[in-house]
Structures are given as C-alpha cells and as structure tokens.
C-alpha cells in the first residue's frame, strides 16, 4: 500500500468543499430569483472562507500574492484570478443583479472547473489525476450549491436544476469511481448515490407538494457531497509510490 500524501490536509480540503459549494450556490442563485440577495452573500462568504482556509495552509503567508504569477500553466493561479473575478462580480450583483449576477454565475462555473483541474494536474496522486475527477468536482459543486439554495427558495426552476445537478453528479461519480476505484471512497460514494441522489431526488419531488421536504433534499445532497470531497482530498490521496519494472541481475546467470 502506498503512503497517503500529507502535504494537503483538511485546510486544503475546505477550499474544495467551501469553494465548490459557494460556486454552486452562486449559479443556483442566478436561477432562484425569489431567494433575494442572501444566497449571493453566502456564496461569497463560502468562497472567501475556502480561500482563507487554504491560505492558512501555505508556508509563506505574506507571500500569498505570488500565487498570481503563473497563469500560463498553473491551475492554482487561474483559480485565484477567477476567484477575484467571482468575488468582484458577486459583490456587484449584491447591488445590481443585472447584469452582474449572470456574470458571477458564469465565473463561478469556471471557478469550480479550475478546482477540478487543480486536482487533475496533481500527477503524483492517482486518485486526483484521473480525468474524470474534473467532471465530478464540477457536478458536485453544482449539486451542493443547488442543495444549499433550497434553504432559501423552493421555486420550481430551482428544484428542476437541483434534480438535474444530482443526476449529473451521480453519472460523474459513477464514471470517476470506475476509472479510479478507491476503498477510502466506497462508503462516501455509496452514501452519495443512495442518500445524496436517490433519497434526495425523492425528497425534491415531494418538495413540489410539501415545500418543507425540499431543504431536506438539499441537506442530503450537500452532506454526502461534502463527505465525499473531504475523503477524496484527505483519505483517498495515496502517493504514486515507487515502481521497479526490472530487478537487478546479479552474479552468474
């Protein structure tokens, strides 16, 4: 068994958890007009908190602005630029939703895609470098954000978006799990499909008649997504390890 990477811990995981959830919430907020400004504000707080968590992890905190130097090849730099745009558009949308809320939502989509690419570029960690990880990170961000938005509004368009995001996430997860199977992800993966998808879809359907069921659906989708992302970053991140394709031939043959 290869060793678990220890360079990125729960603080880094929080960036993917809070950032993905916040970005998904911004996209859902653009669809849920009845929800008002609260989800926009919460989205910004979540994204900023995620970045704050990862700032606590870096070794040279007062050099943090150096993160912006390499947009040419580094997805971390690209994520940082997009985060700055997202926070700017989001703040502007608090004052003037049109045209800034759609702009913030589009930026949020790019932001969560950058997060997926950050993991994919981590060549030393087989569980992260699988190409399918990008689709999973994007889709779970969308599902978690839509789930969180259900605490603010249960309008039909949002419920439909939530259901679509859940299906997309389940497909993305199934594809990822087939490409990069991991014992550490078995339990959270099962929970994501059973509680975070099937049960959540049933609750969302019930939410069309009983609005109180919708937030429960959101909570189920949110909790299972967060658990899986936390496990992906901290528990399934085994190093590549070493390989010896040939053994030394010593002595006479």
């Amino acid at each position: 068994m290869n060793s678990l990477q220890k360079h990125w811990d729960a603080r880094a995981a929080l960036n993917f958890i809070l950032g993905g959830m916040g970005a998904g919430l911004m996209i859902a907020a653009a669809l849920a007009h009845a929800a008002g400004r609260a989800p926009i504000l919460l989205s910004l707080v979540l994204v900023a908190a995620g970045l704050g968590a990862v700032w606590l992890e870096i070794g040279k905190k007062f050099r943090a602005l150096n993160v912006f130097i390499n947009p040419f090849t580094s997805w971390m730099t690209r994520e940082s630029f997009i985060a700055a745009l997202l926070i700017s558009f989001g703040a502007a949308a608090m004052v003037k939703p049109q045209p800034f809320l759609p702009l913030a939502a589009a930026t949020a989509l790019v932001f969560v895609w950058c997060q997926g690419r950050i993991l994919h570029a981590s060549k030393g960690i087989p569980a992260w470098r699988a190409p399918q990880v990008v689709q999973f990170i994007v889709s779970t961000g969308l599902a978690e954000g839509a789930g969180l938005a259900l605490f603010f509004s249960t309008e039909p368009l949002l419920l439909t978006w939530f259901a679509l995001a859940l299906v997309l996430r389940a497909v993305a997860w199934t594809r990822y799990a087939a490409a990069a199977p991991s014992a550490a992800l078995e339990s959270p993966g099962k929970a994501l499909l059973q509680i975070g998808t099937v049960a959540a879809l049933a609750l969302a359907l019930a939410g069309a008649w009983f609005p109180a069921a919708a937030p429960l659906a959101g909570a189920a989708a949110l909790a299972t997504g967060l658990w899986l992302k936390f496990a992906l970053v901290t528990r399934a991140a085994f190093n590549q390890g070493y390989a010896l394709p040939r053994l030394p031939v010593r002595g006479t043959r």
Partner: peptide, 27 residues
C-alpha cells in the same frame, strides 16, 4: 518566490519534494 503551497509536492510522482518548518535555511 515560493509560497509553500505544496502543490508541487502533490504533483511530483516521485515524492521528491519536502516542506519543513524545521529547515533553518529554507523554512
């Protein structure tokens, strides 16, 4: 220039990179 984000460490398939607070020359 390095900010100590350790992204390089998780990107290296050879586990060749380190980051240590105990490194007096390169903390």
């Amino acid at each position: 220039l390095c900010i100590g984000c350790a992204y390089c460490a998780v990107a290296c398939p050879y586990q060749a990179r380190y980051k240590s607070s105990d490194d007096t020359l390169r903390p």
